[in-house]
Amino acid sequence: MITQIPLEHILLLSAALFAIGVLAVISKRHAVMVLMGIELIFNAANLNLVAFSRHDPQLMQGQLFSLFVILVAAAEAAVALAIVLRVYQHFKTANLNQVASKEG
């Protein structure tokens, strides 16, 4: 017998992921940690999409939209990591405060 997880529990988990992601983006100074925070925010949004689409099993709009968000997030991560590598090669640091204070 499969038990259904209540929607409230999924939304609480999603809110916690979103809050942790926002906290990481705001508080961390390392570029890779900021990217990880953005990925947590994307995952929280995907969790909400899938949770709400569960209420209408005939229409899979939430799952399809979530798939597109995952694809965009993967492309964003690849481009962002390439930018971080170029910034590191130029400034010899991945600390965002030091990069912002240095002039090219």
Rank of each mutant, 00 (worst) to 15 (best):
M1P: 08
M1I: 08
M1E: 09
I2R: 09
I2A: 11
I2M: 10
Q4A: 14
I5E: 10
P6I: 02
P6F: 01
L7Q: 09
E8G: 12
H9V: 13
I10K: 09
I10R: 07
L11T: 00
L11M: 11
L13V: 13
L13Q: 09
L13F: 12
S14G: 15
A16I: 11
A16H: 01
L17E: 01
F18L: 15
F18R: 03
F18G: 11
A19G: 15
I20N: 07
I20F: 12
G21I: 04
V22P: 02
V22R: 02
L23F: 12
L23V: 10
A24I: 05
V25Y: 01
I26S: 10
I26M: 10
S27Q: 12
S27H: 04
S27D: 04
K28T: 11
K28N: 14
K28C: 14
R29Y: 05
R29S: 11
H30N: 14
A31W: 01
V32C: 03
M33L: 11
M36D: 03
I38Q: 12
E39F: 04
E39N: 13
L40T: 02
I41G: 05
F42H: 04
N43P: 01
A44Q: 08
A44G: 15
A44M: 12
A45Q: 07
N46F: 00
L47M: 14
L47A: 11
N48F: 00
N48H: 01
L49P: 04
L49A: 12
L49Q: 05
A51W: 01
F52V: 00
P57M: 06
Q58T: 03
Q61G: 10
G62P: 01
Q63D: 10
Q63C: 06
Q63E: 15
L64T: 10
L64N: 13
L64F: 13
F65G: 08
F65R: 00
F65Y: 09
S66Y: 00
S66I: 00
L67C: 09
F68D: 08
V69M: 12
I70M: 13
I70N: 08
I70Y: 06
L71E: 05
L71A: 15
L71Y: 03
V72W: 06
V72Y: 11
A73W: 00
A73T: 12
A74Q: 06
A74G: 13
A77E: 05
A78K: 02
A78H: 02
A80Q: 06
A80W: 00
A80S: 15
L81A: 07
A82M: 08
I83R: 05
V84I: 15
L85M: 04
R86M: 10
V87D: 05
Q89R: 15
Q89Y: 04
H90W: 05
F91A: 12
F91S: 09
K92R: 14
T93R: 06
T93M: 05
A94T: 10
L96N: 08
L96Y: 02
L96H: 06
L96T: 15
V99A: 12
K102R: 13
E103L: 13
G104W: 07
G104V: 09
